[in-house]
């Protein structure tokens, strides 16, 4: 099952509907809908694209359990995702405390090294988002190590590569190349989504998972096994993590409900 790591929420229902349809046409079965404010989050929950009530799941859980979250409105299975862009580490901590109890995936996006370090240390952060070239320069080996240790996903956007031309594209490819040398794709959890952002220049820059896989294999020379992990497996894992958190299956840190038997079944 292919998930697009980021499609922006739009208050205009027609625009959002078109974007969802286009994402589905491009070959994705699910997507993480991105928003940056509380208001947008509430609007998304009220929109009907995401079920307000938690659906009843059958155990044991698998990737197919995600289909219970599909709404009648959209062909895609959509999950909420908040992207935090804090000004400093204190704001990040207060933002995390605010968002951690809510039904969403938490991503952090920053060009500040201190914020990235705090985010990489914090277990509440699910994803560190690197949408463009400017975000790469502050990542150090120490941060990569923390990211690996805390099992945080690194979200990369293909849209940036698509919209850049000439030597800018070459530099970006070089940056990716260096990044994959420093933080290996088999040990770090990369997510390579289409990365559709609110920016005007990215409006028509969606590309399917097959195309992204082909670019990573042929241009960057990554093995197909690792590419599949980046494009498909890690997003599935993230979706399952969301599902477990949404169903309150994590009782305590390190303790998780893996099976639940009904009363009738017990008798």
């Amino acid at each position: 099952m292919y998930f697009n790591s980021c499609i922006p929420w739009d208050a205009d229902e027609n625009k959002f509907r078109n974007l969802v349809d286009l994402t589905f046409k491009c070959g994705y079965q699910g997507a993480f809908v991105d928003f940056s404010t509380d208001k947008e989050y509430r609007a998304f929950l009220d929109s009907g694209y995401f079920s307000k009530k938690r659906p009843r799941l059958t155990f044991p859980l698998s990737i197919n359990s995600i289909t219970h979250y599909r709404s009648e409105l959209s062909p895609l299975i959509v999950f909420p995702r908040i992207t935090l862009e804090p000004k400093n580490a204190h704001v990040l901590k207060s933002d995390l405390a605010k968002w951690v109890g809510r039904r969403c995936i938490i991503a952090v996006q920053s060009t500040d090294k201190t914020i990235l370090e705090v985010a990489a240390r914090d277990g509440r952060v699910d994803m560190i988002s690197l949408p463009s070239m400017g975000y790469f320069k502050d990542l150090s080996k120490g941060i990569y190590s923390l990211i690996k240790q805390n099992r945080i996903y690194i979200d990369l956007h293909f849209g940036e590569l698509l919209t850049s031309y000439g030597n800018k594209r070459t530099r970006l490819l070089r940056n990716y190349f260096k990044m994959f040398k420093q933080a290996k794709p088999f040990s770090h959890r990369y997510i390579f989504g289409s990365g559709h952002t609110r920016s005007e220049k990215h409006l028509w820059s969606l590309s399917g998972p097959r195309e992204i896989s082909a670019v990573l294999t042929s241009l960057l020379g990554l093995p197909e096994k690792h590419v599949k992990m980046m494009v498909r497996d890690h997003t599935e894992q993230l979706a399952l993590l969301f599902l477990k958190r949404d169903q309150h299956l994590f009782i305590e840190p390190g303790i998780e409900i893996v099976d639940r038997k009904d009363k009738e079944e017990k008798e």
Partner: peptide, 21 residues
């Protein structure tokens, strides 16, 4: 390589397009 180069075609005669294999 062909599928990758398909992904990089964004416009045909000024109209935005998406090549989807």
């Amino acid at each position: 390589e062909l599928i990758a180069s398909m992904a990089f075609i964004r416009k045909l005669e000024g109209v935005p397009v998406i090549f989807h294999s």
